[in-house]
Amino acid sequence: MFDARLRPLIDVPLNAIARSLSGTGITPNMITGFGFLLGILAAVCLALTLDYAALALILASRFMDGLDGAVARHAAPRSRHPGAKSQESDLGGYYDIVSDFLFYSGIILAFAIGRPEHALMAAFLIFCFVGTGSSFLAYAIIAAKQGRSDDQSQGKKSFYFLTGITEGSETIFVLCLICVFPAWFDTISAIFGALCLMTTFGRVSQARRDFA
């Protein structure tokens, strides 16, 4: 819901850092991999109930998740495809989205490992994540087939980004919340899970309108 509104604010510092990294040999995929590693470490900390260490690592991981795309747009091309003007690539986009969804669900799984009394609500929240993720990716597949583009609202992306109530920024906020207020996990999961289900329903409805 807030991703498109936050994008202009986030892009300014990310683009400045990306320009400074241009020519250093640091590739977008390296940054994606490093961000994913930070996410794994965050999950380990959460499983050990080191909540504030997990919070710091989550924020660092998501910073890397934003930086990889900025570097891809500013770095000199290293693509095997002729005519490439940057390091943006379909493979990079693939790595990015796979690591994102593994990160989101991994954090919730780690919370349940550290606090098994919350396992049921953790399972519910992961189920809701599957709904938002699958409805998002399935729409993107059909949108690409039909040549649809959302560059104006979301910036240049590897695939179509369908909006919803719960997007990346809201999910990151919730992951941070459970680190700061772990005792509220069940309540946070119930509320956010319901919003995720509403997002899934809205995306399915949008697909019905656009693709029927």
Rank of each mutant, 00 (worst) to 15 (best):
M1D: 10
F2E: 12
A4M: 01
R5W: 08
R7A: 11
R7Q: 11
L9V: 11
I10D: 00
N15M: 08
I17Y: 00
R19W: 08
S22A: 11
S22T: 08
G25K: 10
G25T: 15
I26F: 07
T27F: 05
T27W: 01
N29G: 13
I31R: 12
T32K: 02
G35I: 14
G35K: 12
G35T: 15
G35V: 03
L37P: 01
L37M: 06
L41C: 14
L41K: 11
A43V: 09
A43L: 13
A43T: 11
C45G: 12
L46F: 09
A47S: 09
L48M: 09
T49H: 11
Y52N: 15
A56E: 15
L57F: 13
L57E: 12
L59D: 07
R62T: 13
F63S: 02
F63T: 04
M64V: 01
G66S: 05
V71P: 01
R73D: 02
A75G: 03
A75C: 00
G83C: 10
K85R: 06
S86A: 01
S86I: 04
L91S: 07
Y94N: 03
Y95R: 08
I97R: 12
D100Y: 06
F101G: 00
F101D: 00
F101P: 00
L102V: 06
S105Q: 04
G106Y: 00
G106E: 02
A110P: 07
A110C: 01
F111I: 02
I113S: 05
R115K: 10
P116N: 04
P116D: 06
A119T: 06
F124K: 03
F124H: 05
L125A: 01
I126C: 09
I126E: 04
F127Y: 05
G133E: 14
S134V: 15
Y139A: 13
A140M: 15
A140N: 12
A140C: 14
A143R: 05
A144D: 15
K145L: 09
G147T: 09
G147Y: 09
R148F: 09
S149Y: 05
S149Q: 13
S149W: 01
Q152C: 12
S153Y: 15
Q154A: 15
Q154T: 15
G155H: 06
G155E: 08
G155V: 07
K157V: 07
K157E: 13
K157R: 11
F161L: 02
L162A: 07
G164L: 08
G168C: 08
E170G: 10
I172R: 02
L175W: 09
C176A: 10
C176I: 13
I178Q: 14
C179P: 07
C179V: 02
F181C: 01
F181H: 05
F185W: 10
T187W: 09
T187Y: 04
L195A: 11
C196M: 12
V204N: 05
A207S: 15
R208L: 11
D210T: 10
F211I: 14
